[in-house]
Design a protein around this nucleic acid. Structure first.
Lengths: 156, 156
DNA sequence: TTAAATGCAAAGAATTTGCATAACA
DNA sequence: TGTTATGCAAATTCTTTGCATTTAA
């Protein structure tokens, strides 16, 4: 046991190992900075900015530089490991690519809600049929107002 | 040529006048910089960055400053006259708020396609019902691959 | 007259890049 | 041993802000 991967645990419990393997398959190397970044992404599974991720990594190893974080984020996006989304006026956010899902972003309070990708069903088919466009729910976002911030709800 | 507004044309052919009225109603003033910006937005009706709009305005009146463009863009967004969207990694783009529509953005080639807001119908209802979230199609965007860039199309 | 808008310059935030060094395969 | 990745600093890009002046209402 304990050759490569984690001893005594199932394969699904070591996502970082799997991602590192993917990185290597694409000519990349399994560096500590890259691992620390993935740990930070897993530790706080929401949508984090590059700055927040840098802080998360530097909380463990202060030497890791912000430019390294940016370079690794770019690489991980390229490999499809994480998604990058740009909501408001400010910094982009990153999160692990998990199951198919999309986001509702409230333009008033900034709240981000995940919704299952399956809700795209009919819309996705219509868009594909009429425009030949393949939507990636993970990377898409709906802007609007959440329940609390909506100006008024129709009676009923 | 004209005095103010366009002589001899119908009311629908002077959208700037209408927008200026809206601006005034909200305590704003009808300045030349604002008018020039609106003209630039109308002249090139696609999605333009603040830089492109600045160039478009300065092509007519070089004195107009970029910060004025930014301030006016912010104001016009606030009034709902234009929409701001942030697609790729780079600068935000602005465009006139016209009818209800949304955007398909190809992540490969960057092509932006408008789709009618009506396609949101079922999805919008589902999201409103389940999450209490009101989608604004105009401000939302779908990321994916266009016909040309899609890796492979299923036969049929 | 007077609050709003502008030009200018400078600051600020987010992101990228050049280069010598260090680390992985 | 030869790339690939990193740290550091500096540069870029996009956007915002302070302030004196101008301008629309």
């Amino acid at each position: 046991m304990g050759i490569s991967g984690q001893a005594g645990t199932g394969p699904g419990s070591d996502p970082i190992g799997g991602i590192m393997a993917t990185v290597r398959e694409h000519g990349g190397r399994a560096t500590s900075a890259r691992r620390l970044l993935l740990e930070a992404l897993i530790r706080a599974p929401g949508h984090q900015t590059a700055d927040e991720l840098t802080a998360g990594v530097q909380a463990v190893v202060p030497e890791v530089n912000k430019s390294t974080i940016y370079r690794n984020l770019e690489e991980l996006v390229r490999l499809g490991v994480i998604d990058r989304t740009c909501y408001g006026q400010r910094a982009a956010t990153y999160h692990l690519t998990t199951r198919s899902h999309s986001h509702l972003i409230c333009e008033k309070c900034g709240q981000v809600t995940e919704i299952p990708g399956i809700l795209f069903g009919a819309l996705g088919k219509a868009v594909l049929g009429q425009y030949g466009f393949t939507i990636e729910p993970r990377k898409s976002a709906f802007i609007g107002q959440c329940r609390q911030c909506a100006p008024a709800l129709p009676a009923g």
